[in-house]
Every structure is written in C-alpha cells, then in structure tokens.
Nucleic acid binder design. Sequence first.
DNA 1: ACAGCGTTGAG
DNA 2: TCAACGCTG
Length: 447
Amino acid sequence: MTAPTIVWLRDDLRLTDNPALTAAADRGPVVLVYLLDDDSPEVRPMGAASRWWLHGSLRSLSTATGDQLVLRRGAAETVIPQLVADTGAAAVFWNRRYGAAREIDARLKSSLRESGLEAQSFQANLLFEPWTVRTGEGNPFRVFTPFWRAAREAAVRAPLPVPHVDWAIADGDDLESWALLPTHLDWTAGLHESWNPGEEGAHAQLESFVTERLADYHRRDEPAVEATSRLSPHLSFGEISPFQIWERMHGDLPAAATKNVAKFLSEVGWREFNANILFHSPELAEKNYRPAFDAFPWAEPDPRDLKAWQQGRTGIPIVDAGMRELRHTGYMHNRVRMIVASLLIKNMLIDWRVGEKWFWDCLVDADEASNPGNWQWVAGSGADAAPYFRIFNPMLQADKFDGQQKYIKRWVPEFGTAEYPESIVDLAASRREALAAYEHVKAGQRA
DNA sequence: ACAGCGTTGAG
DNA sequence: TCAACGCTG
C-alpha cells in the first residue's frame, strides 16, 4: 500500500488542468485538502463576498469528488504537518501562488523536505511565471505593452484532463461549521441570482462568453451591453485556468468573435501583469508602488461622504449605479470601476487604500494582485498607471459609455425624481484641488 | 497639465 | 555606458 500524497488546494479549486493533482494521482492515493487560513499573517483574509463564493465553490468541488474533499482550518504551517501525521502521507503537492503567502510555501517546502517528505509546487494559475519575463536588461517590466509582448514569446502548454484519482481517507471539518455565509441578515440574494460558483459554472461562463458575448467584445466599455466575459471570480478562485481560456480562444469560435480574441487575451494579460507586479512588490495593497505618492496629502475621509460612496448615494448617477451593482451582485463593470475609483481618489481626495479595502470586502472577484494593482493604476501610484492629472469627469464618462442611461436606470431607479440626492462633490472645484494636491507628489519626485 | 519606460544606436 | 527618442497611459 503506497503512502498517500496530499494535494493542498488554495486558489485552484478545480479538478481539470490541475498539475499538482495530476502529478499526485500518478503516484498513488490522494488526500485533497482545502485549508481556511485566517491565521497566517501572510494571508489576506477573504472579504464577505468572497467567502460566500468560497462556500459555493467548495460545495461544488466536494460534490465533484464524491465528497472526498477534506476541509481543515488554521495556519498552514501547523495544519499541513498535522495532516501529514494523520494520513501518513509521503508527499505534499500544491500549485504556486504569487503573493506574500508564497513565503509560507517556501518555508513549508523546506521543513517538509527536512522531515524526509517530498514537497513539490507546480505552475497552474499563471501562463508565464513572473521570474521568466524580463526586459533586455534582466529587470521586471513596469509597463504592460512590452511585458505582454515579451511574455507571449514563450509557448503556452495545453491544459490537462481530469486525472483518475484513488482517494485516501482523512477527517475534516463540515463546511457549514466554517460559517462562510452570513448568519443574520442575508444580503446574498443578488449574488445567488448573478453567479454559479464552481468548476462547472466556470466552464459554462466561458462557453456563453464565446458563443454569446465575444462577438460584441469591442463594446466591452459600455456597462449596459453584455459583452464582458464575467470570468474574473472563476479565475480568482481557480475554478478555471488561464491555460484553459487560452486554448479555448485558439479553438473554434463564431466568425464574428475572432477579431476580438487578441483584445480579450490582453485583458488576461493584465491579470498576468498584476501578478508580476505583486510578485516583485508583495506589499502592493499597502504601499504606493511609486514612492513619490507617499507625499500625497490625502483627506481625512468624512464618514458621511464615504458612506454615500459605499452605498451608492453620491448624487452622481453612474457612480451610484456602479456602487449599487457592486453591493447587489459582488461585481462591477470594469469601466464603471474606474469611474467610481476616480471619484473617490481624485474628487473626494480619499486614499486609494480605503476604496481598495471596500472592494476587497464586496467583490466576488477580489484578487490579491488585480484589486490593489488596479486601484493604484487609477490613483496614478501604480505600474503603467494613468497620469494623475487625467481626472475622469463622471458625467462625461456616463454620456460616452451609457448614453441611453440604460445602466443608470437599471441600478438607480429613482434617478430623475426628487428622491435622488444632490451631488456630494463639486466636480470642477474638487478637480482643481486634486491637481493642487498632486504638486506634492511632483515635489517629492524632485527631492 | 508629461514623466518615465524600454529601445536603440553611438561612444 | 549613456543620451536621445518615441510612445504611452
């Protein structure tokens, strides 16, 4: 009887194209485990919307394995060795992650090996490993376009099929005991209406994108048009891999869709780019990527204004529509994310970190790299960021991308009535203040 | 309202 | 090695 191999799942909640699982299954019996790690300081605890998603995704995965998924809770460096002892495992395999938590993985890998176990990590969640994409001078890229051009020169492997797995037995927690779902005041009805967490839901989403939406992808900036993939939460939990998406984009597509493939894949490229930035700057969610922004004189947030932004009551229709979409569905259209972020940062002068945290709690696709990376992009403090002085006018943005006000009316039904609030910001005056505040960053750069 | 990235070609 | 350049967000 061969000793089992533990496969430790993290952001790779899938059975297909799972290199760690496939390699483990080749060796003999497998213990498939997911740890809820709210204890290790290197792990950013999931927000409320992500916890709702995690519950559904784990439920789905457990069913797909015939209830063989083992759930454990606690700090990985305590729980994994315990599980090794409980199961008599001879090896622990996992797929790589790229944030601060990879320090945990590195320490664990050496301590397991010191104890005579085999420990191996695999490439599964990024098309291109961050340390392989370098400028001519050997540095990491800080600009997207040359990064993506250089990255694509490497070959992309084909995805792996579901392996045949011989499951080994191990005790675990009951999913309900983790209380991932809200216990009182259930706010998740809109999430249920909008999403189907799990590997099956992820592939259905990819298929509906290819057949129904990709042909309209050139209109992806219009929030009232269904043209985006809506794959982000599935990717964020690893229910589908970028390799599977890549292969599908090179397979049979509707004729009208082919012209949009490169653009869509470049958005997948932005996910890779942000993961690269995080790999080289693990404190991306806390620190300005460009230190000159440390001199920025952020305003002390007025609690009422901040609440108005969070709840979608700023009096600026496109912003309120977006913030309400977020609270209701755990998602916001990409163009609208830029607009609401710009208002918070450049009209309300509130530190991007405040907005990033709110998104982290509300988004089902909250991603450790993309969320802070994109907030810093809007702020101007990030990699390849928009110039700070490019300040969106949310009214013009609405005219341009929601000219019929279809999106606005969907989420802000009282728009145009006396019930709709006055704007909490003077767009022209706050714009001037923001530009004046930016002078501090320019001064900091010279120093 | 332009700084800063990556490239290139000369030294 | 460096400065000039083109480009971009």
